[in-house]
Design a protein around this nucleic acid. Structure first.
Length: 271
DNA sequence: CCGGACGCCTGTCGGC
DNA sequence: TGCCGACAGGCGTCCG
């Protein structure tokens, strides 16, 4: 599910409810996520204060008195802030009980998400250490993409979904960004000139920022912290629109599998 | 190093 | 109506 805009939407939604709060308990109903939640975690968190929430790639980072709580939403995860008395539903695997009578609740039907405590700084964690730049930071640019693409024969769509290249671009926003930039998703990454990579970097930034402004994209599972869906779905240009007219030229949007993922593009606008 | 395939899970949908 | 395969927003790991 969640790509960068959905994780950032969750961060912004839950941050006001969590910042400055003390953790009363971690209630785990199902430990078997992407990596099992170690039982030690349950005893480590109570009593700690949440000082702030950051996002790195698609990871949410809760800064505690001691260390960092990392949360990843996988394909189907979502986070809500609810009264502690709200009964948990199916797939509500973890509750973080807060000192104001509320709870941060992680729901994740497919259990591809993760929740792990790690010592600060979280940037040293093996899963974060080798990540590429944040797409909304100044470290990300067309020149960066062009430099890393040298000699790469993989399709450009696969290339921009590689977290060593740039983080946060998942299956939806890869298709959307390539359409906005007018680049065919199957084009080998190493055969795209520098000016076109400038356009692509700008497109990635624009698409992600627009999606964040709309609260992300809800296809099935994703909801914001208050249960509302994200509204960017109505702004999608090609994703999940096979057979419908391209907003640029009216030709019909095509669907093709690239790297085992569904990809959507306009055969006329994207070369 | 690179690129491609494969699991990990549950839910949903289309076709027969 | 029921069953079965395909597919779904991620990503670590393995293999050639």
């Amino acid at each position: 599910m969640p790509e960068l805009p959905e994780v950032e939407t969750s961060r912004r939604g839950i941050a006001p409810h969590l910042t400055g709060r003390r953790i009363l308990a971690l209630v785990v109903r199902e430990r078997r996520l992407r990596w099992p939640i170690p039982p030690e975690t349950d005893a480590r968190l109570p009593g700690q204060t949440i000082h702030g929430l950051r996002r790195r790639a698609k990871y949410l980072l809760l800064d505690l008195d001691d260390g960092v709580l990392m949360i990843h939403l996988g394909m189907s995860g979502s986070l809500r802030v609810l009264p502690a008395t709200a009964p948990p539903g199916a797939h509500d695997h973890v509750d973080l009980l807060l000192d104001d009578g509320r709870v941060l609740r992680l729901r994740d039907p497919r259990r591809f998400g993760m929740l792990q405590w790690t010592p600060a700084p979280a940037e040293d964690h093996p899963l974060l250490r080798d990540l590429g730049p944040e797409p909304l930071s100044t470290a990300f640019s067309g020149a960066h993409l062009h430099r890393l693409a040298r000699g790469r024969r993989a399709p450009v769509k696969t290339f921009i979904m590689d977290s060593h290249v740039v983080v946060g671009v998942g299956n939806i926003y890869a298709s959307e960004s390539l359409h906005l930039a007018g680049i065919h998703p199957h084009r080998p990454a190493g055969r795209i000139a520098a000016p076109r990579y400038e356009r692509l970097a700008a497109a990635i930034r624009a698409v992600l920022e627009a999606a964040i402004a709309q609260g992300g994209t809800s296809l099935r599972d994703f909801v914001q912290e208050d249960g509302a869906p994200g509204y960017f779905r109505q702004s999608l240009r090609v994703y999940a629109r096979a057979g419908l007219p391209c907003p640029g030229c009216g030709d019909l949007v095509r669907q093709q599998r690239i790297g085992q993922r569904s990809s959507f593009y306009c055969p006329r606008c994207q070369r």
